[in-house]
Amino acid sequence: MSESTISVTLEVWRQPGTDAAGRFETYQLDGVSTDSSFLEMLDMLNQKLLTEGKEPVAFEHDCREGICGSCGFVINGNPHGPDRGTTVCQLHMRRFKSGAKLTLEPWRAKAFPVLRDLMVDRSAFDKIMAAGGYNSVNVGNAPDANSIPIGQDAASEAFDAAACIGCGACVAACKNASANLFTSAKIGHLAMLPQGQPERYTRTVAMLDMAEDLGFGACSWTQECEAACPKEISVKWISRAQRDYVKGRVVKGI
C-alpha cells in the first residue's frame, strides 16, 4: 500500500432514463489515489459533480467486496474492466497509468434495459431463476445433512458453478446477449448434487426456455462470457446444460 495519485479522463455514458436518448460525457479527474478502488474513483467524480451543481453518475453497487453482484459496467470494451476474475468494485486504480482514457458504458442487452447512466434492469435473471432454479423442498422436509454423502470433489465442483453472482457480465460480453453462462451455472450447480436430481431435466428445460422467451440470445460458443466472468465460471457448464436439455426434450419428452 504505497499511495500515489494519477489523473484519468473518463468518457461516461449518460442517459437520464430508459426511454431517453443517451450520450457520452467527458470528465477529467485529477488526484486519484492509486489505492482507491474503481468505484471510489467514481465516488470522487460524483462528489466533484455535485459540488459543481451537476448530476452525479448513477451506477449500481453495494457490497464492494465482489460478492453481491450489484456492480458492473463496461470499461474500454471489457465488462468489469481489464482484470480477469475481478468485479469492477475490486478493480483498483493502481492498475491504471496516469493519463489513462477510460470509456464507461452500461451492459448492453435487449433483456437489460438501461435505468439511468450505467445502471441496467436485470430482473430478467430473477425470472429465469423462478422458472426452476431451485430444489423443491419445503422447510421441515429435510433429512439429516449427513444422510447423503457427497464426495469432496463433487461438492467442490458444484461450488464452482454456484459461485455465480448474477452480475450480468456474461450477457454483456456476448455478441448475442445470451444468458447461457448464468443459466447453465445454476443448472450445473444443482445437477452436480444428489438433491438436485429429481428435477434435473424439467429444471434445465424450463430455465433455458425462459431465457429465450425473455429475449436473451442463443449461444454461438465464442466463450467471451467465461473471459468476462468475475467468478471465472467455465463454459463447460453450458455444454453440460445443453446435453441435459437435449436429453430432457428428446429422451424424456419434456
Binding site: 431451485y134 430444489n135 423442498v137 422436509n141 429435510a142 433429512p143 445433512a145 447423503i148 454423502p149 457427497i150 464426495g151 469432496q152 461438492a155 467442490s156 458444484a158 461450488f159 454456484a162 450447480h189 444443482l190 452436480m192 448434487l193 438433491q195 438436485g196
Partner: peptide
C-alpha cells in the same frame, strides 16, 4: 440448506 443444494465443504 443441504437439501436446497448449498455446497458445504465436505
Amino acid at each position: 440448506a443441504t437439501a436446497q443444494g448449498v455446497p458445504f465443504a465436505r
